[in-house]
Design a protein around this nucleic acid. Structure first.
Length: 624
DNA sequence: TACTCACAG
DNA sequence: GGCTGTGAGTA
């Protein structure tokens, strides 16, 4: 229960509270309220709900024979993520193992299968969890204007505006006496009806006279100033958000509420599952007693270890706080790394206020697969997996398009391969076409990734001739640098050369004869065309596919009649596919953007300017 | 652009 | 441990 016991004068100013209403400033206010919400054992919860099971069913999410998420019901049997499936079954005979969805080798879509998939013929798909995670995120976004997605199953939220408007409605006249924003905030003499902390409270020092510093329902928690009041309101909002997720989607969450991200994050992990923890500013020292420096986000690895070494060994957070009461001392200890020192200095006080990053846009998407033994010992073994990679990436592009009701396309594609000899090479190219149509897109990506593969083989021969490329133990296809083509009026900013050529073509009324162009450069590979069509200032290394050693395995191409080395067969077919594709793409491309393109060539400059502005506004709102 | 390292869940 | 992702840094 909350007990209002305001000090004679608030420590805070009007400005501190007003800042909450500005999403750019709120995080930095001493009255900021950040919450962190985490989906408990998320993948297991997804599987539990998908299979129509209850919280009491000991579900685990399985990948091959390892556990990637363990439900709380299964944890009751002592099952942990470290267990192999067999060990887990011994601990819990009625265990319910749910394998992730998988792609079958050679297939472009994932499925849940009714047998136990093997890593040799399958690739795990985490898509179902991404989709569910997105649903949760959408609920958060529907309530809160600043949400940072920290991972597929956790988010930070800046509750500033929500808290501020709640205060405005609770104390409608509280701004009346304000003369300057640097005035001290008024003293509250009465807590409005219905206001109370929601969740697990960490005690302040002056509340700790009973035994533990944490207490139950009947305890009384002080509201001594505005910082306690905003956290109280924040705890109610956090609770409502979590309930909304549970009611709409069925997922149990844990939450944390505090002044900054690092505190909120530690708090949400403190009581699990289905519980939230509240940290008032004055309770921060007590709360941090439960953690080590390396528990802070970003300090879990070498950096945290290095800091501890410099401090002369593992040092409690409270010791760091008390011993290094001035920043200079800490900076000296930390090898004069002023930035890091300040961060640590603030962190141990719970005052490290990092802004929330409202980046909803994905920066890259990758489809990755580890191969076992010699299962990919030659080029042909990799092809079916490339089909899978392309399929997976395409599904994700479709999802993104749907989510934002836009056409969102990557500008770059990278293929990376790790050979069993330990050598990794990667090759990136620029994608100069991005058809709206998914079949075309898929074919294009397929051709492009095969061309990249071809290039990688050349790279291997040229740079590491002593190390064999095959067998391959890992391959990864990724797409990156996304643009939203829906908002594009002029393609000038997007694809300089392509567009210039097109604009000229449109002006002169010529039809683009892509096939002809292709034939003209028929000694160039598709990849070279992609790369070189962008800019020729830094030519890519020649890909002398002609130089591949002669073999007797040659045949005539049925399309062009050329004699084709058998090792070139696939590439050659891809070339024809690409030629064919190119014309289709262009038709599609012109259909989609042709009119806009015309508008942007100067026929109607005013209109164009206007629409550009509209686009700017649009883009600042749109994630891409 | 290619590659490596660090960190996280 | 396997898988997916981001960001920093280097040449």
């Amino acid at each position: 229960m909350a007990l209002l016991k305001f000090r004679k004068e608030s420590k805070f100013k009007y400005r501190n509270l007003l800042d909450l209403n500005d999403s750019k400033k709120a995080f930095n206010s001493p009255l900021s309220v950040i919450c962190h919400i985490d989906l408990n054992a998320f993948f297991a919860q997804c599987e539990q709900l998908r299979l129509g099971l209850s919280d009491n069913d000991p579900v685990v999410c399985v990948q091959w024979n390892t556990l990637i998420a363990v439900s709380y019901a299964a944890r009751d049997y002592g099952v942990t993520r470290m267990d192999r499936l067999e060990q887990a079954k011994l601990k819990c005979p009625n265990l319910i193992p749910a394998h992730t969805a998988v792609f079958k080798k050679g297939e472009p879509t994932w499925k849940y299968v009714d047998y136990v998939p093997s890593p040799v013929n399958h690739k795990v798909s985490l898509d179902p969890y991404r989709r569910e995670g997105k649903k949760v995120l959408n609920i958060f976004r529907s309530e809160c204007d600043l949400v940072e997605k920290a991972s597929v199953d956790e988010s930070f939220m800046d509750l500033g505006r929500l808290v501020f408007s709640k205060i405005m409605s609770l104390f409608p006249s509280f701004l009346d006496n304000m003369k300057s924003t640097s005035d001290k905030l008024p003293v509250i003499d009465k807590l409005p009806e219905g206001l109370d902390f929601k969740g697990f409270m960490i005690k302040k020092d002056n509340e700790a006279e009973e035994e533990p510093e944490i207490a139950g329902e009947n305890n009384i928690y002080l509201v001594e100033d505005w910082d306690d009041l905003v956290i109280l309101i924040g705890s109610m909002i956090c609770y409502d958000l979590r309930k909304k997720v549970e009611e709409n989607l069925g997922y149990k969450t844990s939450g944390g509420v505090g002044r900054v991200k690092t505190i909120a994050k530690l708090a949400s992990g403190y009581q699990k599952p289905d519980q939230q923890t509240i940290i008032r500013n004055d309770a921060i020292p007590n709360f941090l007693k439960h953690f080590r420096l390396t528990d802070f986000w970003s300090l879990g690895g070498k950096t945290g270890t290095w800091i501890n070494e410099n401090l002369g060994g593992e040092t409690p957070i409270s010791t760091i706080r008390e011993h290094y009461s001035n920043l200079e001392d800490l900076t000296k200890i930390l090898d004069k790394n002023a930035e890091l020192a300040e961060k640590i200095y603030l962190m141990v006080r719970g005052e490290y206020a990092a802004p929330l990053e409202d980046r909803e846009a994905v920066k890259s998407m990758a489809s990755n697969k580890n191969f076992r033994g010699n299962s990919v010992s030659k080029r042909d073994d990799l092809i079916p997996w490339i089909r899978v990679f392309v399929g997976e990436l395409l599904l994700r592009i479709q999802d993104t398009d749907e989510e934002y009701n836009s056409i969102i396309r990557p500008l770059k594609m990278t293929l990376s391969v790790l050979s069993s000899s330990g050598v990794r090479h990667s090759k990136q190219c620029t994608l100069t076409q991005s058809p709206k149509d998914y079949d075309l897109l898929s074919q294009m990506y397929h051709s492009t990734s095969l061309a990249l593969l071809k290039h990688l083989e050349v790279i291997w021969n040229e740079t590491t001739p002593s190390q064999k490329m095959f067998p391959i133990i890992n391959a990864c296809l990724s797409i990156l640098v996304f643009v939203n083509l829906s908002g594009i009026n002029t393609l000038d900013e997007l694809m300089p050369n392509i567009r210039k050529r097109r604009v000229e073509d449109v002006k002169t009324g010529q039809i683009i004869e892509t096939e002809h162009e292709f034939k003209k450069v028929k000694n160039e590979t598709l990849l070279e065309k992609f790369i070189n069509s962008r800019e020729r200032t830094s030519p890519s290394p020649e890909m002398k596919f002609d130089n591949i050693p002669d073999t007797e395995n040659t045949d005539n191409c049925r399309i062009c009649g050329d004699k084709i080395d058998i090792t070139e067969w696939q590439t050659h077919q891809d070339f024809h596919l690409a030629v064919n594709l190119e014309s289709k793409i262009n038709r599609n491309f012109e259909e989609s953007y042709g009119e806009r393109l015309l508008n942007s060539t100067g026929r109607n400059k005013k209109l164009n300017k206007k629409s550009n502005k509209a686009q700017d506004r649009n883009q600042s709102k749109l994630p891409f």
